[in-house]
Design a protein around this nucleic acid. Structure first.
Length: 576
RNA sequence: GCGCCCGUAGCUCAAUUGGAUAGAGCGCCAGACUACGAAUCUGGAGGUUGGAGGUUCAAUUCCUCCCGGGCGUACCA
């Protein structure tokens, strides 16, 4: 809430008290939201609940309030519209409040001080020994944005890459390599080579189920802890994959605080199992060890040990939860993992709940939709990496970058470091596209819309930044301190200013709901207002007082867009 | 079968968590570059919010049932 809001809120509460309405009772009912239509006013108050408290009809109370809240240094007007009261702030006060805060990097526009909350974010977590394709990108990009958003909000963040470097998928890879692989080929192009091996395994395992038994034996041997052929193989394949992942991560600008894959918990699983057992919830069932969760509304039991004695995904996640609890003391643990794994995380949380472990309440699955591709019949279907129609991330990024490069060649042929900028813009376009919609929505992957940079896209927002940077370059004077300008000259920038004022709410909602699209949406809105404003308002060469006032506005907009894009993991180039 | 998710303009999506006349982009049509960047801007057409009930002063939002699509459903992750 900004100072303007709290001032208005205080005046409303005082006025209500004058009408005999208890301040404490009214407090939660005074919600100041942006009105549906900004022409109505800057903020609106719905008088429905308050009217009940006052024993009056909502329109009557709204009229009364509007009449009693007279204008002051901050509030310009209050007008009743049916059961609503619409308020307008003085344009001067609005501009001063917003621009001064942005210029001084004050919260929420700038980073908040540490507020004591600790958030673990488990994201990306690819199955190594498989190529990094479009499907891996969602968790990576969403998780990265959440890390940045929470840091901005003042949380201590632990970004964790929980690599899938253990278990059956890895054992299958190993089996394929032992049968058909050779090291020279592997080193040439590790990702492609391993992907081909994996595909071959999948095909042959369908004909020959004995392959899966072989893989299970290899996994048993690996998990025995002995220094054997399997362990050396595991080390080799893991090293190669991890090296290969550095490429995509570097291009996407993603970093991790901890790379602790499933194998990291190899020596921590027995202790975890002992803890489950000691809590009395572990049961034997059909030769396996499970936890039943029927009383929590989950029919399927959570398997923690297979009948052959080996562990499962759940076992490792449980060990990881305990480890994170003692190491990081998190308030929240966010698992940025596809929606198809909802049951898995319900079970994980369920087991911890049944064990009466306090950490249970911190466990939060952050699900997201699938990446779909279009069939020849025009239907959308899941990308199947096995059938080989997977699109590799590098291919997509390269296409986007090439398209950007050709646009630059056409529109801005003299741009220095054009290749570098093309890389930034192209990669950003793909990231932005992934963060644009609610994460639960499936992403419909099609080249045409992916490579269209008109409208609500990353380049649209970046272009706004570039225009603003261009103005700041051309004006050839420095941006004045905000206390040196005449804010009343910015009355015509009200739409920009009101949009800027929503930044904090957008980021806060993104953090609370683990939903980066709130930030993305706000960036589109702000860029749109800027583009419109710049069309009709010039900066360079205006009368000094006007030029100075607009310079502060332009600078603030550029700062805010840069900050917002930064929260999404996207760069804001000065030229493009 | 059961559980969960999704269904809003031709297409892709919003709608500040129950509030005012449901908003954007793409595509389509018509306009705007001899002043700071046209990857832009300004207009226009386009809606029974899948359907039927219910709760409420108020429902795209909550409840029930149905329809359509998807995901999941104990020794994979």
């Amino acid at each position: 809430m900004t100072d303007l809001h709290s001032h208005l809120r205080d005046r409303i509460l005082t006025t209500l008290a004058g009408l005999g309405i208890d301040r404490a009772a009214a407090e939660p009912m005074v919600r100041l939201d942006p009105p549906k239509n900004r022409d109505h006013g800057d903020v609106a108050l719905g008088a429905f609940q308050l009217a009940k408290l006052a024993g009056k009809a909502p329109p009557a109370l709204a009229t009364e309030l509007a009449a009693m809240i007279t204008s002051d240094a901050i509030v310009e007007s209050a007008a009743a519209a049916g059961p609503f009261v619409n308020f307008r702030f003085r344009r001067e006060a609005l501009a001063r409040e917003v621009l001064t805060a942005i210029q001084s990097d004050a919260v929420p526009y700038g980073k908040a001080n540490q507020h004591g909350q600790t958030v673990c974010i488990d994201f990306s977590s690819p199955n190594i020994a498989k190529p990094f394709h479009i499907g891996h990108m969602r968790s990576t990009v969403i998780g990265n944005a959440l890390c940045r958003i929470h840091r901005h909000q003042g949380a201590t963040v632990h970004g964790i890459n929980h690599l899938g470097d253990w278990g059956m998928p890895f054992a299958k890879m190993m089996t394929a390599y032992m049968r058909w692989g050779n090291e020279a080929e592997l080193h040439k192009s590790p990702m492609r080579y391993m992907f081909d091996l994996y595909k071959r395994y999948s095909v042959e395992a369908k004909q020959n189920p004995a392959l899966d038994d072989e893989a299970a034996k290899h996994f048993q041997a690996l998990e025995s802890g002995a220094d054997n052929q399997e362990r050396r193989m595991w080390q080799l394949l893991r090293d190669e994959s991890l090296k290969a992942f550095q490429g995509p991560y570097a291009r996407l600008g993603v970093t991790f605080d901890h790379i602790t894959g499933e194998s990291f918990f190899e020596d921590k699983m027995e202790a975890a199992m002992a803890r489950v057992s000691a809590s009395g919830v572990l049961e034997d069932s059909e030769g396996a060890q499970v936890v039943w969760l029927k009383e929590l509304g989950i029919k399927e039991p959570c398997l923690l040990r297979k009948s052959d004695g080996t562990t499962l995904y759940h076992t490792r996640d449980l060990a990881a939860a305990f480890y994170r609890e003692t190491t990081f003391h998190p308030d929240r643990i966010l698992y940025v993992v596809g929606a198809e794994q909802k049951l898995h995380f319900d079970q994980l949380k369920g087991v911890l709940t049944k064990m009466k472990e306090p950490i249970a309440k911190a466990v939060e699955h952050v699900p997201f939709g699938l990446v779909l591709s279009k069939t020849d019949e025009g239907k959308w279907e899941k990308f199947a990496s096995r059938s080989g129609n997977a699109v590799f991330l590098d291919e997509i990024l390269d296409e986007a970058v090439a398209k950007v490069r050709s646009i630059i060649r056409e529109k801005n042929p003299d741009l220095p470091n054009a290749d570098e900028v093309a890389e930034q813009i192209g990669v950003s376009a793909i990231i932005f596209n992934d963060l644009k919609n609610s994460r639960i929505k499936d992403v419909k992957f099609d080249w045409e819309s992916m490579l269209n940079f008109d409208g609500e896209t990353g380049p649209y927002v970046q272009f706004a930044c570039a225009r603003l940077s261009s103005i700041l370059r051309k004006v050839e004077v420095s941006v004045p301190d905000s206390d040196q300008i005449d804010f009343s000259l910015l009355a015509d920038a009200e739409r920009v200013l009101l949009t800027m004022m929503d930044f904090g709410t957008a980021v806060q909602r993104a953090a609370e709901q683990s939903e980066p699209s709130h930030v993305t949406g706000h960036m589109i809105a702000l860029a749109g207002e800027i583009h419109s404003y710049l069309r009709e308002h010039y900066v360079v060469g205006e009368a000094p007082a006007i030029q100075n006032a607009r310079l502060v506005l332009v600078d603030a907009a550029r700062r805010l867009l840069t900050t917002g894009l930064g929260l999404l993991g996207i760069a804001a180039p000065e030229r493009m």
